[in-house]
């Protein structure tokens, strides 16, 4: 059913919070996503021309890098992981003619049912974030599942029930949780760090949030003026080592 579930206030909204302040752009999340999903419920994630001239393949998560100018942090390089944001009002779901694309009422996860997708690609056109990719081998659409086959997987120990990309991220720049609950760890993090939606102007109300880069400073007094050339040892140095030392 591609009509969107009625959003109940306080309903669970599972999603990711990605910290652009610490993302080093290592692609770990992208590859672990590929690995998990390749053998998981959405698998395989095909590769095309894997040893040839145009290596290409299907990924649910891709890591860009940008150089930015202006903004709170000034001139800076920003690594930017891009995957499905599990939007609250995603057109990728409503445009789907078959009901293959759907948003789960219970947790907001947006999924594709591979058994009924006709591969019309319209959902990928409807996604402003480029989050859906077409499986050229199976001729159906695939996308990030928020690792639905991990986060609820009862065969996994409790601690491991988190998305593969979150588990692998070496700088721990990825967080997973319920953004519908204002008191969840992720919601508090978003609040504390001023987490943002991507392209809010499109009106999709993404669930995922990105934490903007920040800039730590060490406050110091006014930097002392250089000594005149040739003065040799400064008084401060001399007085310092004049202090009684004891081994």
């Amino acid at each position: 059913m591609t009509s969107l579930p009625q959003p109940a206030p306080g309903a669970t909204k599972l999603g990711l919070v990605i910290d652009l302040d610490t993302c080093v752009g290592c692609h770990a999340c992208a590859v672990s996503c590929k690995e998990w999903n390749h053998g998981g419920a959405s698998g395989p994630l095909p590769d095309y021309d894997s040893r040839g001239a145009n290596p290409d393949g299907l990924w649910f998560n891709r890591i860009h890098s940008y150089e930015t100018e202006g903004g709170a942090c000034g001139s800076r390089t920003v690594n930017f992981p891009r995957s499905c944001l599990h939007c609250e009002e995603p057109q990728c779901v409503t445009v789907c003619p078959t009901g293959a694309s759907y948003k789960r009422a219970e947790d907001g996860i947006v999924l594709v049912n591979p058994d009924i997708c006709i591969g019309c690609k319209l959902c990928s056109w409807a996604c402003p974030y480029g989050a859906r990719e077409f499986d050229e081998d199976e001729s159906i659409m695939k996308k990030c599942t928020l690792c639905v086959d991990r986060i609820y997987n009862e065969t996994l120990p409790e601690a491991e029930r988190e998305p593969a990309c979150v588990a692998s991220c070496p700088s721990r720049a990825r967080h997973f949780g319920d953004l519908g609950d204002p008191n969840s760890a992720v919601s508090l993090l978003v609040l504390a760090r001023g987490g943002v939606e991507l392209m809010p102007e499109l009106g999709y109300k993404p669930t995922n949030r990105y934490l903007p880069p920040r800039k730590a400073v060490v406050p110091t007094g006014p930097v002392e003026k250089p000594l005149r050339a040739g003065t040799g040892f400064s008084a401060s140095l001399l007085s310092l080592v004049d202090r009684v030392l004891s081994r």
Partner: peptide, 12 residues
């Protein structure tokens, strides 16, 4: 719901 996805498949 996950009509199509088995969400509790043992990893291996």
């Amino acid at each position: 719901m996950a009509k199509n996805i088995n969400i509790s498949q043992p990893v291996g």
